[in-house]
Amino acid sequence: MTYEDRLFAALADPTRRGIFERLGERRRSVAELARAVPVSQPAISQHLKVLKEARLVRDEAVGARRIYSIDPAGLGQLRQWLDRFWREQLAAFESAVEAERRE
């Protein structure tokens, strides 16, 4: 699976989307997620693993607990798209300026 496929697969599941949205509100531990989402703690851990592999969430150790949050690098996809978008647009702009010069 490509990275993009993993991303779509990760968010295709409604429970995982729910978990992702909860983490969008604020960072939480697995236990906190288990209270907020009607799914068992082992199931939540499994969903988090998928989300983490898709680089949508990240975790950090805080004492004995792992705290999950949205991975800001998940925005990399959007940034990369915009980077290409503006590069293409500026190339088109450059051609237009050059075309006017030749007229």
């Binding site: 949205i70 800001p72 998940g74 925005l75 959007l78 940034r79 915009l82 980077d83 503006w86 590069r87 500026l90 190339a91 702009f93 450059e94 300026v97 050059e98 006017e100 010069r101």
Partner: peptide
């Protein structure tokens, strides 16, 4: 979520 800006430049003969 912090994200760096996208920055692009092009030099045109004008």
């Amino acid at each position: 979520i912090e994200s760096d800006p996208v920055r692009k430049s092009v030099t045109v003969r004008a």
